[in-house]
């Protein structure tokens, strides 16, 4: 590792290597729990699709696939900047790294804006079955409501995770202002990156599951 990049030892550890591995492993194990969390929703979506193939297909055609696709591209690009930020952190170059992280978070915000616009379009199309005051627009099989509801559960849960991710990335780049940050906490950038990539990964599964496969 270059000068100025390193890890400040916490008291329970005996070596920097141990501390670094512990941090990464801890994050991975935590991400496993997140994976199981989302998988529960995916398995529900699959069961729904098996029980009511017709209704699910009919409802899925009303999802705005171009927004979903565009959002996937936005997240992939944000992941690109996050990877770059990790590479820069390893080289000890604080300011370009912070810039990359701001761009990453900015793309995350763009994703949320697009998602919000999509929700607005759904609302305009009367695709909000849980609002009692607004009649549901997609007539036919009741199972279509179910699919739309599940779409909101999955995408909103993902949005919550993304919001946490944006907060995390912004906090990290803010902390990195402090002189010598990378010489003490270099591994924190990589761990933040793991979380960000994972959110990207979940969306990469969400997009085909909801938008594409059911068409």
């Amino acid at each position: 590792m270059p000068d100025g990049v390193g890890i400040e030892l916490a008291e329970q550890f005996s070596s920097a290597r141990q501390q670094k591995e512990t941090g990464e492993l801890g994050m991975w194990v935590f991400l496993l729990t997140e994976l199981m969390l989302f998988s529960t929703l995916f398995v529900s979506a699959l069961i729904l699709r098996m029980l009511h193939p017709g209704a699910v297909t009919a409802a899925a055609l009303h999802l705005k696939m171009w927004i979903g696709g565009l959002n996937t591209a936005v997240l992939i690009t944000s992941s690109f900047f996050m990877s770059l930020a990790i590479e820069l952190s390893r080289a000890g170059r604080t300011s370009p790294m912070r810039l990359c992280m701001v761009v990453t978070a900015g793309l995350g915000v763009l994703f949320l804006c697009l998602k919000g616009y999509e929700y607005y379009r759904d609302y305009a199309e009367h695709m909000t079955p849980f609002f009692a005051w607004r009649p549901y627009g997609l007539l036919g099989d009741p199972a279509s409501r179910l699919f739309v509801d599940l779409y909101y559960v999955i995408t909103s849960l993902h949005a919550v995770h993304l919001t946490i991710g944006i907060g995390l990335v912004m906090t990290m780049q803010h902390l990195a202002r402090a002189p010598g940050f990378l010489s003490r906490h270099a591994n924190r950038i990589a761990i933040t990156g793991l979380y960000w990539h994972f959110i990207d990964l979940i969306w990469i599964i969400v997009y085909p599951t909801l938008y594409v496969l059911n068409r």
Binding site: P2, I76, F80, S83, L84, L88, R90, A91, G92
Partner: peptide, 17 residues
């Protein structure tokens, strides 16, 4: 490693992208 150019850092993320 500190001497790595930005370009070489870009390579892997760009390929993935």
């Amino acid at each position: 490693m500190s001497g790595r150019s930005v370009l070489s850092m870009l390579l892997k993320p760009a390929l993935v992208w």
